[in-house]
Design a protein around this nucleic acid. Structure first.
Lengths: 222, 222
DNA sequence: ACGCCGGAAATCCTATACGATTTCGCGCCG
DNA sequence: CGGCGCGAAATCGTATAGGATTTCCGGCGT
């Protein structure tokens, strides 16, 4: 839990972290109402820090807010997940192409390690671990993207998606192994200095494939 | 001024609208401090609505906030403009390709009208008008993008860029005419049902060209 | 039995007050 | 004359209180 971190940072920060982690970790499901008074009593602060924390969560899309009615945890349905993931595919594709020239040999090593770790986790059916290593793999590239604005957008979308990543990954188990192979291929492209357009197309497809697999599985499940 | 609109919407909304329009219209330049007490007295409300309005502006990136120090209008330098514009190019390219099949004949008419109006405005050296019609042109496409997440991202970035659009347009005057031609070409592609990839590439380049022109001009001006 | 209405409870919104933190200027010392 | 420390002013952060709005439930009429 990262909820303990905020101490010399004001109550509002503390409340924000707590509520955020609760939402991300799924402690309170979609539609759950966030009542200011109740939270204030529970967290032993006044209503205002809670209020501001909730407004921040609203601005970042974690909760829906209605005037004179309060906030409730934003429902993340399958459609909005696909849409966010698609957006990410487009941006990450471009970001990967931009980052390619700035990826060092050390970076490649880190990515290879992450990919191996992901493969190992998959063999042990450790979905959460695999997901973490997957994030680490792409995180290396993100960090090398020279466009700060895209970096921010990527992390923002990523955080929102994270609240469901374990669910998704276990929903389409076969996708994990394919991802590992695609990662390897991407590594090769980066190492051999492939064309930017090719890198972008591949990185984009890599993520779009996940979306497609998810939607296929979902259509079948209905 | 859209500042009058908020009446039965709570003071906090009203304050938010006022401050936002001030920033967007450049009434208070970058670095300008937003002092809560002063604004509260000026707008005849207590400090709390002002406080929340400022936090909202912070979450949306309009102001920078430092704890125990207050907020100041976020400076929008040339680099961050280019970065945001580049992000927009990537997203809008994809959005245009996605929207293509959903663009009706009436939509095409609207776009043609907007492009003609833009051309006319340019002939009269009406930079602001040309910029507005340019927005209208792309707005038609945005509205037809089936991915709601991308639509939100686009409008969000667009709003941020708008605070400088007049400045930029007058900074690279020759770009306007070229834009009109590119718009016409894009219209042709949409009308003849060009491939998605081609549409995306062209729409992206259309915006990236603007970035390139701006950076070229800037490099020359230094 | 069903729908409408009024009041009470819950919750949110705003105002005011006070404590905490930072910043700036003044005086002091080297 | 310049650097340093201290104190006051400015500003922010949090708490508490009361007014406003919404929601919910029980009673009444049809």
């Amino acid at each position: 839990m990262a909820a303990v971190a905020a101490q010399r940072q004001g109550k509002q920060e503390r409340v924000y972290s707590i509520l955020r982690s609760r939402i991300v970790e799924g402690a309170c499901g979609p539609g759950h109402r966030l009542v200011i008074d109740a939270l204030a009593r529970e967290l032993e602060v006044s209503q205002m820090p809670v209020r501001e924390a909730i407004r921040r969560l609203e601005a970042e899309g974690w909760v829906l807010y209605t005037r004179n009615q309060g906030a409730q945890v934003a429902p993340i349905d399958a459609v909005s997940w696909s849409e966010a993931m698609t957006t990410m595919a487009v941006l990450e594709g471009y970001a990967t192409a931009l980052a390619a020239p700035h990826v060092s040999r050390r970076d490649l090593d880190r990515m290879r390690a992450a990919n191996r770790a992901m493969e190992a986790a998959l063999r042990e059916l450790d979905v959460a671990g695999a997901s973490t290593h997957n994030l680490a793999f792409h995180g290396v590239i993100h960090a090398r993207c020279p466009n700060a604005h895209i970096r921010r957008e990527l992390t923002s979308i990523q955080e929102r998606l994270n609240s469901l990543r374990n669910t998704i990954f276990s929903y389409i188990p076969a996708r994990g192994e394919i991802s590992v192979h695609e990662h390897a291929e991407l590594l090769a492209m980066l190492e051999h200095g492939a064309e930017a357009a090719a890198i972008e197309a591949f990185a984009r497809e890599h993520k779009l494939n996940t979306v497609a697999a998810f939607e296929l599985r979902r259509a079948g499940a209905v």
